[in-house]
Design a protein around this nucleic acid. Structure first.
Lengths: 333, 333
DNA sequence: ATGAAAGCGCTAACAA
DNA sequence: TTGTTAGCGCTTTCAT
């Protein structure tokens, strides 16, 4: 009983074909005809049947977004931006949460991807082989915040984030910092480690910790290790981890930033939820989502590998290294 | 070039109709036939075309979830549960973020709802009229965390959450508490206020504050008001607001919980991200999402109005009222 | 510029 | 139990 295009056509006194054209290719139809059709459609409250259109055109008008964890503010922010941009472009977004399971992610892409015109895949940990399989599928796939299998991708500049962080800490007199690594196999974690190795200022020693889960509890666990390692600053895999570090340090009576500095990553909504507010690398999450949608919807001629710039936001959780630790070789001064 | 049901039928030596039945109504077809079809489908890598099925059956296999803000951990948690349950039931979830705009919500339901078999609507602030319009649409709608327009609904027990909170604070000796109200027109906020009026223990005075935005900054603003009102405890609209209160109190040198107690609502992931961890009313977010999906997919005979129980989780942000404030009428003791 | 007709892939009567 | 047939609502050649 819903009103079909045929009904509109009859009401407007034209053929279904003309009605169709009037709605989807307005400039190929006579102005008055178009008017009549539009008016009829309006009057009858016509709503095109997307399934029928999809069947006919082969395009569903759906985009599919696969994320490891919707509860993670990083992905929630990306999802929000993706959804918003996609809707502006006339697409609906199907969302799939893989619960951090890379195998499930591959399934989801296959299943949901078949019903969509494109897939945005956030899969920090999917194996290269699985990625290649995904790339071989019929639906265009764009990687968000990782690269691989020669698929188009949009990532943030992890390496530069680390560089900025290390320079900041070095400038503050820190000489021994702990890096709380992300989960095993994480693509961005690997980029960060490269940055750690390449960009560390002379005289700055980096202690590698991890792998750790990219959540609060991971940070809690890492804090003790960082302390034991004698670090005066902790660089966390993301903001959630940084909050865990903060919490554990406080519980142990270590003051932040007086005794130890803590730096997060992402500058998600949680970064300013705590005291002291987090010094963190701001990743343009909304831009990440928007760019991903744009690139997926009209791909440039050459496979894009976009790297988005990041910026260190200095807040209250980082400060000058404590005097007695600035020269760790002479702790007794 | 994708393989169609017809291809499978040919390969299996049966008619398309039989192939269709073998796949979707396995028990109405001869075992051997079914075997043959299944084998052929497997061999060819057949994937049913959902759009074609949707067109033919009138069911899309999609559910639509409309939320005001995906970035809000409350809705992210619900979305996650919804997505998971829906997938288990063979449905894909289209998600829409209304950016806290009730008008947009109505549009989204109309647009996306038409392409879905059902809509889960989280709309704390949509007007009754808009709700009625939504209810009149062709697609089944279920309300999440609000009631109205005689639509099926699943809500949490706001009233009881408030009751438990007030009893808790009263037992701790608080005699004057501030309630940080949610945004104007919020359905659950109205329920909370009812609870405030009905269930307040004798001798407990409640100061109503608000409306406030249901986010961190709302709490920051409210904290000053609560202090000015002479409250020894603050009951926040949700955890995010509570964190804002916490932060502002700390900034003003007020100790939590020694000087002032703070209680949140929802027990979302952020509740334990801070020190002291938040005393808060635990809402069963995952259960909320799951129940909503179940009720939408097979509705009981009578329109369901499910109320989910809540439980006060006492953590570090609430404690005994300060001695000199326990008897506010005699501040000089 | 418009209409007629075919077909997208699948399902569901209705027959056999 | 299986095959035949028609059709879901829309788009898109191909004519006119």
């Amino acid at each position: 009983m819903p009103v079909t295009l045929r009904d509109v056509a009859v009401a407007a006194g034209v053929s279904p074909a003309t009605a169709s054209r009037a709605l989807s290719a307005p400039d190929v139809v006579a102005p008055e005809t178009r008017e009549a059709v539009l008016r009829a459609a309006q009057a009858l409250g016509y709503r095109p049947n997307r399934a029928a259109r999809a069947l006919s055109t082969g395009r569903s008008g759906h985009l599919c977004l696969v994320v490891p964890d919707l509860g993670n503010p990083f992905f929630a922010a990306v999802a929000k931006a993706v959804q918003s941009r996609a809707r502006a472009a006339g697409y609906a977004v199907m969302i799939a949460d893989s619960e951090e399971d890379p195998r499930l992610e591959a399934d989801l892409v296959a299943q949901l991807g078949a019903q969509a015109d494109g897939v945005l895949l956030c899969s920090p940990r999917m194996s290269a082989a699985a990625l290649a399989a995904v790339a071989a599928g019929p639906t265009p796939v764009l990687l968000v915040n990782r690269e691989g299998a020669d698929l188009p991708s949009v990532v943030i500049d992890d390496r530069d984030g680390i560089r900025q962080t290390l320079r900041h800490l070095h400038a503050l007199g820190h000489r021994r910092v702990a890096h709380v690594g992300g989960p095993d196999g994480s693509w961005s974690d690997a980029r960060r480690r490269e940055g750690l190795a390449d960009t560390s200022p002379a005289g700055l020693e980096v202690v590698e910790l991890g792998p750790h889960a990219p959540v609060f509890s991971g940070g809690v666990a890492a804090a003790d290790l960082a302390l034991a390692a004698g670090a005066t600053a902790v660089v966390a895999h993301n903001d959630l981890v940084a909050l865990g570090v903060l919490d554990r340090l406080r519980a142990r009576g270590v003051r932040v930033p007086e005794d130890v500095s803590v730096v997060g990553f992402d500058d998600g909504p949680v970064a300013t939820l705590v005291t002291p507010p987090l010094t963190t690398v701001a990743a343009p999450l909304a831009l990440l989502g928007r760019t991903a949608v744009d690139l997926l919807l009209d791909p440039p001629d050459v496979t894009p590998h976009v790297v988005l710039p990041v910026e260190l936001v200095v807040r209250g959780s980082s400060a000058q290294a404590p005097a007695d630790a600035a020269a760790p070789t002479a702790p007794g001064t």
